[in-house]
Design a binder for these strands. Structure first.
Length: 214
DNA sequence: TAGGCCATCTGGTCCT
DNA sequence: AGGACCAGATGGCCTA
């Protein structure tokens, strides 16, 4: 996450101390869609510079703005600020929609039962992580079996994040890893419906087995 | 009714 | 300056 390389915490000003924006401006910011109205009605905080801009323009601030340029009126400034905020909100909404579209696309390629409830965002990410890990292991095992046909390699030696056993194949298909560890080692008991069927060899999940989840 | 999930708004920070 | 990204806050909806 680039924006906070030093881990600088965001300073939250207690809402009680915040300067309320004019109610009219807040209401104007409500989008025309069926968006929840509430957050826009919340009071907001302004920096000292912003506050001074609202109250009246100091000589210093005016100079910074560009010398002879006549400072905009309070209403013009407030209008501009609202316009910028509105545009930023639109962009943010759009960004989140794009993110959700990507998540939907990801859900689309994950093996789930048709009648399964839609995976939540966190479940989708964890499941995808586990799924990729499982596929990677499958390829690795397949590769290994071509080189050394006998005996089969125990899963515990394959670098499983959980140091698992043969039975851990089932856990790969759990939509949720334990405790947010992003490790594909969730317990089978928790999601029995997603247990991995045993492959003929008892080790390799074949394409046929994958299709069992669709 | 509490808790989980989600959409949205918002201000801060970084980048172009 | 403006856009992208992020995290916090808030309220709505749904379910156990």
């Amino acid at each position: 996450m680039a924006p906070h390389p030093l881990g600088a915490p965001t300073i939250q000003v207690p809402r009680e101390t915040q300067q309320p924006f004019s109610e009219a401006s807040d209401n104007e910011m409500l989008s025309s869609k069926s968006t929840p109205p509430s957050p826009t009605l919340m009071p907001r905080v302004y920096s000292e510079a912003e506050a001074s801009e609202c109250r009246g323009t100091s000589r210093k601030v005016r100079a910074r703005r560009g010398g002879r340029n006549r400072p905009k009126s309070d209403s013009a400034l407030s209008k501009q600020r609202r316009s910028r905020r509105k545009k930023a909100n639109d962009r943010e909404r759009n960004r989140m929609h794009n993110l959700n579209s990507a998540l939907d696309a990801l859900r689309g390629v994950l093996p789930t039962f048709p009648d399964d409830a839609k995976l939540t965002k966190i479940e989708t990410l964890r499941f995808a992580h586990n799924y990729i890990w499982a596929l990677t292991q499958t390829l690795r095992i397949a590769d290994h079996s071509f080189c050394v046909p006998e005996p089969p390699v125990p899963c515990g030696e394959l670098g499983s994040p959980g140091g698992g056993s043969n039975g851990d194949w089932g856990s790969l298909y759990s939509p949720v890893s334990q405790a947010g560890s992003m490790s594909p080692t969730a317990s089978l008991e928790e999601f029995p419906s997603l247990q991995m069927p045993s492959s003929p060899s008892g080790l390799l999940p074949s394409a046929l087995v994958f299709s069992d989840f669709l």
